[in-house]
């Protein structure tokens, strides 16, 4: 799934994007609050990371507007201020968690996982479905108790399928997920990745719905 990163500092954003990508997320960067608002209202994200020190004003207003509009995605706030007042205001405005700069990457990762877990109503970071076991923390994958080696993109795709089993995911959705907004849509990279996943797992697990997209089938082979 994608993460919406709202950070105005270029260098800080770069480092976060590198990290998030390594975690198996596709981060989308917004540098202003208005961009972030448009992005969050326009498409769905697994999580939003929001820097409170945004240039064009009030990050808190963005949280309030999103919450008011019924957006339930977890919001993790980054702030340079350690005063209780700031933290309370952020949490009371609708943020789910906060981190005070300077950020420790391991803590950031753990908090992102916690927020996603809670949002998806899981108790751990292990997804288990259709004989597949996928660990979201160390990206470890097993199929029928056999270890499977996945590339980062394969992991991202499989995670998405396992979070939404028995539902059709369109090709565009999957492309956005693995390449982001700036991705190169012309290639048939998605088809290649799906092909590889089928090879590594089982051909029946991911079904092609002609003209629509792909679907992970939990009751295959019956």
């Amino acid at each position: 799934m994608r993460i919406l990163l709202v950070e105005d500092d270029e260098l800080l954003a770069k480092g976060m994007i590198t990290r998030l990508k390594r975690m198996g997320y596709q981060p989308e960067l917004c540098t202003t609050g208005s961009q972030a608002l448009l992005a969050a209202q326009g498409s769905s994200f697994e999580l939003m990371i929001l820097d409170l020190g945004l240039p064009d004003g009030f990050a808190l207003d963005i949280i309030r507007q999103l919450r008011h509009g019924g957006v339930t995605m977890p919001i993790l706030v980054l702030t340079a201020q350690s005063q209780l007042e700031t933290k309370l205001t952020a949490l009371n405005s609708g943020a789910d968690d906060y981190l005070v700069k300077p950020i420790d990457v391991l803590e950031l990762e753990a908090r992102i996982r916690v927020l996603c877990r809670r949002q998806q109503q899981r108790t751990d970071d292990n997804l288990q479905l259709a004989g597949i076991s996928l660990n979201l923390q160390n990206h470890h994958c097993q199929f029928q108790q056999q270890d499977v080696n996945l590339t980062l993109r394969e992991f991202m795709l499989l995670k998405e399928f396992m979070l939404k089993p028995d539902r059709i995911l369109s090709r565009q959705q999957l492309e956005e997920l693995s390449y982001g907004w700036d991705g190169d849509n012309e290639s048939n990279a998605i088809e290649v990745h799906i092909h590889n996943l089928r090879k590594k797992l089982s051909a029946d697990v991911i079904k092609t719905v002609r003209g629509v997209g792909y679907m992970l089938v939990t009751q295959y082979g019956h």
Binding site: D9, G15, G53, A80, T86, V100, K101, V105
Partner: peptide
Amino acid sequence: FVADASHELRTPLSILQLHAQNLSSA
């Protein structure tokens, strides 16, 4: 002033820490 000062001081620190941690596993 406190908000601006902490932003100005902690953002570069965050950059240093984040990229250093990234570097250690890159």
